[in-house]
Amino acid sequence: MSEEILVQKAIKGDQEAFLALMHLYEEALYRTAISYMKNEGDALEAIQEVTYRAYRSIKTVKQPAYFKTWLIRIMMNYCQDILKKSRREVLEETLLMKHGIIEDFTFLEVEEALLNLSDYERELLHLKYFEDVKIKDIAIMWNTPEGTIKTRLHKALRALRAVFEEKGEIKRV
């Protein structure tokens, strides 16, 4: 069964269709939540809350083709609200090593660099590069011309590159 048919059924109140959609986008929701919340417990809690919010407001979906974008946007908004309330700080590598967590910390460097950008730039980069949402879809979602989205995306990437260059990264041509 296609995604759009599942969305249409879910909008009409089919709980099985809604559940199938949530399983379909479970990984994308988790990646989004973990990129914002920085720990598994908070990310899982975010998924629970977003599932509830999506179920409660499924009838507001206007275009079934953009269900994933709608769902990810709910997740991003929820995570931002929680982070604003708690003003969490990014975990340092030494703290993680102290607790025996040893792994590649490149993602922490990227997340820390993203914190230097505005909320708008961070959301834009997240949608485009972490969730693979097309520029056309972002433009529709934000009711902004595609050219403007491309320009803002370019500026956000330039700002992100500048953060890494300040930290001593090799300048790329």
Rank of each mutant, 00 (worst) to 15 (best):
E89G: 04
E89L: 06
V90I: 13
L91T: 15
L91Q: 09
E92H: 11
E93L: 00
E93A: 14
E93H: 14
T94I: 11
T94Y: 12
T94R: 03
L95W: 10
K98H: 03
G100S: 10
I102M: 02
I102Y: 10
I102R: 14
I102V: 15
E103S: 09
F105W: 05
F107V: 15
L108A: 04
L108Q: 12
L108Y: 14
E109N: 08
E109L: 06
V110W: 09
V110C: 05
V110R: 05
V110T: 12
E112D: 13
A113W: 06
A113V: 08
L115R: 14
L117Y: 06
L117V: 12
L117I: 14
S118H: 12
S118L: 08
Y120R: 13
Y120L: 09
E123K: 12
L124V: 07
L124R: 03
L125W: 05
H126D: 01
H126I: 07
H126P: 00
L127V: 04
L127W: 05
L127G: 09
K128H: 12
K128P: 00
F130G: 01
E131M: 04
E131A: 11
D132E: 08
V133C: 01
K136E: 08
D137S: 11
I138A: 10
M141I: 00
M141E: 08
W142S: 09
T144Q: 09
E146Q: 11
E146I: 10
G147M: 01
K150L: 10
K150Y: 12
K150P: 06
T151R: 07
T151V: 15
K155R: 15
K155Y: 06
A156G: 12
A156K: 00
L157I: 05
L157D: 13
R158A: 11
A162D: 15
V163P: 03
F164E: 09
F164C: 13
E165S: 10
E166L: 08
E166N: 11
K167L: 13
K167P: 10
G168M: 07
I170Y: 08
I170Q: 10
R172T: 14
V173Y: 14
